[in-house]
Design a protein around this nucleic acid. Structure first.
Lengths: 164, 164
DNA sequence: TCTTTTTGGTGGACATGTCGACGAAAATTC
DNA sequence: GAATTTTCGTCGACATGTCCACCAAAAAGA
């Protein structure tokens, strides 16, 4: 038995429990992204941001570009690029939005709906898998907690006037 | 009052509550990163990954490169590049690790420690701010929940044999 | 010991996300 | 209604993160 190695792993694990919340969330997001990427790659050739757009449209998200973009939390730039990629692949139909000449109306094509039908169950199973890892109490509050953290992460100025 | 706009926002907010957990976590991580980036930029010129290395070393993380990398959850490549950036800036001292010829020993220089002392309180206040946004019950379980999700996100094969 | 396998750091190519600028359309103000 | 301000999509430059291939050192197996 490699005693030194065990010590090292234990030290690592112990240390991890004291890390800042921000780092833990970052790490979790990276792992979840990687897992999602792997599942998507195994069942098609979409990128993760592409799939996310297909996914929320498949879930019935609003089709106005701004509303859709805010649901996804995408940057304007990234949203524009990814939508155009999907349009070129024939998965999205992009038309003018009658009520606002600046925005677009984004909807799935038949091909886009087909991709969604194929991938959605896989990714849904993954999310179920994640939820099942939680204790009932945790499961009950996780969405509310994430939502509150999200709101708190939007503050540009923190309580402490910390500029010099 | 722009009634249409209110409807749209309400629709967006309502829809958000049904989004997949994976997307919510991704969105939260992006917001937290952006907030951290803004704070770091305001008090220095480190990048976020650079700060993370300085931070965990300042917290007393192991100095062996592999252990340190795993605490951070960094990719091998990114870790290597970021450590070299910090070394060039004179914030890190990188030497050979006696116990393993492949690994490196990474530690803060005096300059690195100074940067840590300057930034740590600011980022700590931010993390306090995040925690205070949670209800007591949520605060109690959040770390455990994140840890369980992290573990569940490492599975490469999901319960369902979902190939075709 | 000798071979094989695993693990570590590095570099390059690429995917993802951020930021600032730009013109066009809409909302606001006067 | 005209001028101003805001919001929108697009673009280019850059920061961040991922993935793969390479070689060297260590570990495991013979």
């Amino acid at each position: 038995m490699p005693q030194g190695k065990l010590d090292q792993d234990t030290e690592t694990a112990d240390f991890r429990s004291g890390l800042p919340l921000s780092l833990l969330i970052h790490q979790l997001a990276m792992k979840i992204d990687a897992q999602g990427r792997a599942l998507i790659a195994r069942h098609g050739d979409l990128t993760l941001p592409q799939w996310r757009i297909v996914r929320v449209l498949g879930l019935g998200a609003p089709e106005g570009s701004t509303a859709l973009r805010k649901v996804l939390g995408f940057d304007k730039s990234q949203f524009s690029k990814t939508v155009n990629q999907l349009q070129e692949r024939g998965l999205l139909s992009v038309t003018d939005l009658p009520t606002d000449g600046r925005q677009l109306r984004v909807s799935l094509t038949d091909a886009g709906r087909a991709v969604h039908e194929r991938l959605a169950p896989v990714l849904e199973a993954r999310n179920d898998h994640l939820m099942q890892a939680l204790a009932p109490e945790e499961r009950r509050v996780i969405r509310s907690a994430l939502s509150k953290l999200s709101h708190a992460a939007e503050a540009t100025e923190l309580p402490k006037g910390n500029v010099d």
